[in-house]
């Protein structure tokens, strides 16, 4: 099992993590294209990121979602019908979509955001 763990108490909301994520996957700095989100309310920066719970998987009609060998939930974009059921099923709002893309996207625990976080608010857990 491999997943990203955030410490919201340490987060300053600088969004370096989101920039790194969207740049890696979409070649641009755009929070809407990041797998990690910072929800800023009540003067707190809540880190929203997939914990690889797998609750999105069973109701996928094409079985495009599955665990890889490291216990990370992976979406097979070739199999995805773009229905967004997984977006609705995700209990922590960590499955994201773009209007122009068929398949949604999610954190694959690559760890690039961990490296970029200036206050060490993110940690890659391997169990």
């Amino acid at each position: 099992m491999k997943y990203l763990k955030g410490n919201s108490d340490l987060c300053t909301g600088c969004l370096a993590c989101a920039d790194a994520c969207s740049e890696l996957f979409f070649k641009e700095k755009n929070i809407q294209k990041s797998c990690i989100r910072i929800n800023q309310n009540d003067n707190k920066n809540n880190i929203i990121v997939c914990n690889q719970c797998g609750k999105c998987m069973p109701l996928c009609p094409t079985q495009a979602l599955s665990y890889n060998s490291q216990g990370v939930v992976i979406l097979d974009k070739n199999e995805c019908s773009g229905c967004l059921i997984c977006v609705a099923e995700c209990p922590c709002a960590c499955m994201h979509y773009l209007v122009e893309e068929n398949a949604p996207f999610k954190c694959i625990a690559c760890g690039i955001c961990v490296k970029k976080c200036p206050v060490s608010a993110l940690e890659l857990i391997k169990e």
Binding site: P58, C60, P61, T62, Q63, S81, G82, C83, A88
Partner: peptide, 14 residues
């Protein structure tokens, strides 16, 4: 129980 029982892709009523 708990299956993706939609008769068309994208039906979440299952």
């Amino acid at each position: 129980q708990g299956a993706a029982d939609g008769c068309w892709f994208g039906c979440s009523l299952h």
